[in-house]
Amino acid sequence: MNSRSGNATALRRLMTEYKQLTSQGAPDGMFTAGPVSEDDFFQWEALIMGPKDTPFEGGVFPARLTFPSDYPLSPFKMRFDPPLFHPNIYPDGTVCISILHAPGDDPTMYESASERWSPVQSVEKVILSVISMLAEPNLESGANIDCCKLYRDNRAEYERIVRQSIQEQLGL
């Protein structure tokens, strides 16, 4: 009988998610994601397209996904590399979003339990949430305080900085 314990479950589920992502593709081609190397299914890289009609439009943002051995019981971690300038992204690139927080661990105290991680969430659902977070920052659970302030007090400057960083990335 197949074992559903420990690593085997996590690995199997990651393989299934990857297989489905590659055969179906992400909605509207908004991102791609897959293991960084074939030796380690627990480290993925995602490439996320900046959502349209936001300052991130036109950019392509690589992120590291790190899965725990008890995935999907526990959520994975997501870190943009290089970091993005965004109210909900820590200066080191780590994404702060409620769907990636296990129930009962809420660094910001503002998240409703209904938005947290649960084992039926997935890479696809999380990345789609992150994409909508790029479009609509949540100032109640800020991760980059300077960016939060700028976003609140001087939206135009915030957008200019974001656009400029994308231009630099693209070498334009």
């Binding site: 960084v36 190397s37 490439l47």
Partner: peptide
């Protein structure tokens, strides 16, 4: 725009594949 994004995705898929090759 829609088509452009899809083209983009194909590119990134290739890149991801290359990334894997480089790492290997």
């Amino acid at each position: 725009d829609g088509r452009e994004t899809t083209g983009m995705q194909d590119n990134s898929l290739i890149i991801v594949q290359r990334t894997l090759d480089v790492r290997k």
